[in-house]
Deep mutational scan, measured.
Amino acid sequence: MEVRTIKVFTTVDNINLHTQVVDMSMTYGQQFGPTYLDGADVTKIKPHNSHEGKTFYVLPNDDTLRVEAFEYYHTTDPSFLGRYMSALNHTKKWKYPQVNGLTSIKWADNNCYLATALLTLQQIELKFNPPALQDAYYRARAGEAANFCALILAYCNKTVGELGDVRETMSYLFQHANLDSCKRVLNVVCKTCGQQQTTLKGVEAVMYMGTLSYEQFKKGVQIPCTCGKQATKYLVQQESPFVMMSAPPAQYELKHGTFTCASEYTGNYQCGHYKHITSKETLYCIDGALLTKSSEYKGPITDVFYKENSYTTTIK
């Protein structure tokens, strides 16, 4: 009895394709271990004539594949690729409408935090270190965002349907971005203890939790000093293409032309909904596939993004 075979390709990165001759009487799992086709788990399936010449994702289970996976995804987590594939199996079914010149995501599976993050990423200057993220990001900007969303979920250790947080998501993504040249110098002034300067680099240099107003941050924000008295913390120097200011959701007025974009969060910790506000020729609110415009805006804002380049204080 002759062994019926077909020729397929296996890959971990969709760049390096490895030619395989597979036995049609055995499952993919018996031949390769966990195997995925377009995100779908085909591990328990036997090869079919229609699979001839198709590319299958496999887990990096030998040295060659491990090197290829690390170079593309910059992670050695053995569960990463499987999590990416199972997320992709959902995100490829989502709709990605162009809204006001940006790629958004039609609401499904509690994905409003991903839509808000995706919209924000198209408006701030950011370059990702893992080629996987950078490639998928370019495709997302062009309207094909399924891979990018699935990668975000995998890097953030999230599953489809789980509630997510924009600030946490951005923080994970910033860790995989090139923020080497970003720098922030802060000064804390206390009447009792004097003053202390701190220099922050990388992710810490672009994120701040405690106030939404970048102007206020430049002037000074009140913080408790270690001595128990009130101290003032203010920005001395900022070198970065953008800054992200966050605070627990509270009524906040966004003035046209003073910011790049913002995240609105309605609801409580267990259950809520994100919308995205962007400042173009007027203010726009993007909620999944829905767009509304207004000249002014007041609502429960939790993150505001500002364009920056270089700032030095005039406070002496």
Rank of each mutant, 00 (worst) to 15 (best):
D303R: 00
R83P: 04
Q222Y: 07
S79I: 08
F148Q: 02
N16F: 05
K275C: 07
L179V: 09
F80Q: 06
A136G: 08
T35V: 13
F70K: 15
G33F: 05
E2P: 12
Y73C: 04
A154T: 09
A262F: 00
A115H: 06
T27N: 11
Y57C: 10
S279D: 14
V99E: 13
E308P: 08
R4Y: 12
W94F: 00
Y208L: 01
V21C: 13
A108Q: 11
H176P: 03
L126C: 08
H51V: 05
A132D: 05
N100P: 01
F148S: 00
T27Q: 11
V206Q: 03
D63V: 07
I124L: 15
M244G: 04
K191T: 15
G29T: 07
W107G: 07
T75E: 06
F148P: 07
Y96L: 05
L126T: 01
R4S: 13
G143Y: 03
D38Y: 09
K219N: 12
Y73L: 07
T232L: 12
F56T: 09
A142R: 14
D13W: 00
D180Q: 10
A289D: 15
C156E: 00
T313L: 14
T266P: 04
M245V: 01
K54E: 12
F70P: 04
I152N: 06
N309Q: 15
L59E: 15
T192L: 10
A69F: 15
F148T: 05
N268E: 12
P97A: 09
D180C: 06
N16G: 10
N111C: 06
Y306S: 02
A150L: 04
N89I: 07
T313V: 11
H176K: 10
T116D: 09
S79K: 14
N49V: 12
K183L: 10
N268A: 10
T35R: 00
K219R: 15
K127I: 08
E239I: 13
F70S: 09
G101K: 07
N187E: 07
A136S: 09
T10S: 11
H48N: 12
C227G: 02
R139G: 10
P47H: 05
G53C: 12
T5R: 13
P224G: 07
S181V: 05
M26Y: 13
R83Y: 03
L163A: 10
D135C: 07
Y265F: 13
S279N: 01
A289G: 07
Y172H: 12
K191Y: 08
E71F: 07
I15G: 09
A136Y: 09
A136I: 06
E144P: 05
A289Q: 08
L114T: 06
F174A: 00
V185P: 03
Q175M: 11
I15Y: 05
T55R: 11
A154L: 00
T302P: 03
F242G: 00
Q230C: 06
